[in-house]
Amino acid sequence: MSAPTTSHTTDQTTPITNKNLDDACHDVEAKISRTDNKASLLLAFNGAVLAGLASAADKDLPRPAQLVGGCAVLTLAASAVLLLLVVRPNLGGKSREVREGFPRWAELSEEDLLSAMRQDTRVIRVRALSLIALAKFERLARAVDIILAALALLLVAAVLTIVGP
């Protein structure tokens, strides 16, 4: 009977498991990068829309259009907060134990770091990165929904402006 494998060694893993772990690490890292890029583009979009709205702030608009437009600005601000949380670095903090990666390595002595480098932590890394990616995607999806709501409010404000008091 063979000894059970642990998540910290590659001695008994198969070549396909090694390939799958490597692929999973790269895939999750790429997804995190894509999410950050999308969030950055949406932050720029929010900034452009808010700048356009700021240029209309001194216009004499009907009160209902001002109220709905103000709600749209607050909605865009809420989406910007979510997008900032998407791109905010996750270094672990006090709320969770960091078991792998550069935040953990920074805490180790040189000897402990060398020991850590001898361990296969891909399973831990895939899980940790997947949790980070999932949180980023959820925030990104919520931010997009909020941006769509803000655009709907801006459409209502435009109609109210055209229709008048």
Results as ranks from 00 to 15, higher is better:
V86K: 00
R127M: 13
L84C: 11
E100Q: 14
S79V: 08
Q119M: 13
L83Y: 00
S109F: 00
G92R: 04
Q119L: 15
L113R: 15
L114G: 11
T121H: 10
D112E: 15
R118I: 01
M117I: 03
R104P: 05
L91Y: 06
P89N: 04
L74P: 04
K94Y: 09
L129H: 12
L114M: 12
Q119R: 13
L83P: 00
S115P: 00
A116Y: 02
V73T: 09
A78S: 08
T75S: 10
G101R: 05
L76Y: 08
R125W: 08
E110S: 12
L85G: 14
L84N: 10
G93D: 05
R99A: 12
A116M: 05
V87R: 02
L129K: 14
E107L: 14
I132L: 13
T75K: 02
L82F: 09
M117G: 01
R122P: 02
A77I: 12
A133I: 04
E100L: 06
L83Q: 00
S109V: 00
A80M: 08
V86L: 01
L113T: 12
T75G: 04
E111K: 15
L114F: 09
L85V: 10
T121N: 12
R122V: 05
L131P: 03
A78N: 07
L114R: 13
L74T: 10
L113V: 08
R125Y: 05
V126H: 04
P103G: 01
N90M: 03
I132H: 07
R122C: 08
V81M: 09
L84T: 12
L113E: 14
V81F: 08
I132P: 01
V87I: 10
R118D: 08
L108C: 08
A128C: 02
E100F: 07
